[in-house]
């Protein structure tokens, strides 16, 4: 118990706002559909690796660390696609993963959005035109936002997610 109390009162290392406003604006412009205003305060994300090399997953995991603390923006990573609003897909979609990707998307309730994170997810990256992958996520699912990068840094991913939520304010 002593440990927990001392950690409670220590200085927090969370960055004030790691995502720069210009980045948010730029990514905001790339959002393809209108976002329901309800997602302005609470966004549940299901992450899906469709064939990535794990670097993007590590960066997405880093979003939950004390520096980026994505929870404070109302963003939560959920365990089940049925609880999710956004499907965050990384990696070029491999043939072995195609069915799993489609099933995960189908299990999500409306309204739902798809975000492709990383160069491979955006257009297939270095695997474009090879035998093992279908290509970018848009070959299988309707993509609403792309976040390029190899891998995208947590700040860039966060900017993309915040842009999604910020867009929510515009519909009302």
């Amino acid at each position: 118990m002593v440990n927990a109390f001392s950690c409670l009162v220590k200085r927090k290392v969370t960055d004030e706002h790691p995502a720069k406003n210009e980045e948010i604006e730029k990514l905001g412009a790339e959002i393809k559909r209108e976002i329901d205003a309800r997602f302005g305060r609470s966004l549940a994300i299901r992450e899906l690796d469709a064939g990535s090399d794990n670097a993007a997953e590590i960066e997405i995991n880093n979003l939950s660390n004390a520096y980026y603390d994505v929870e404070r923006f109302g963003i939560a990573f959920v365990a089940s696609p049925r609880h999710a609003d956004v499907l965050l897909v990384t990696g070029a979609v491999t043939h072995n993963m195609e069915i799993a990707v489609k099933k995960t998307y189908d299990a999500m309730p409306f309204p739902k959005f798809v975000v492709a994170a990383g160069d491979d997810a955006c257009d297939g990256g270095i695997y474009k035109g090879t035998y093992a992958v279908l290509g970018g996520v848009d070959k299988v699912l309707p993509v609403d936002l792309i976040i390029p990068g190899n891998p995208p840094t947590p700040a860039q991913i966060l900017a993309g997610l915040l842009a999604l939520m910020k867009n929510a304010g515009k519909t009302r």
Partner: peptide, 20 residues
């Protein structure tokens, strides 16, 4: 969240989530 050294969600977060 505070014991983990970060800010954590807002105290009204559950309300927003339920509404959504």
């Amino acid at each position: 969240a505070w014991t983990q050294g970060r800010q954590g969600p807002s105290v009204f977060q559950t309300y927003y989530t339920l509404a959504k």
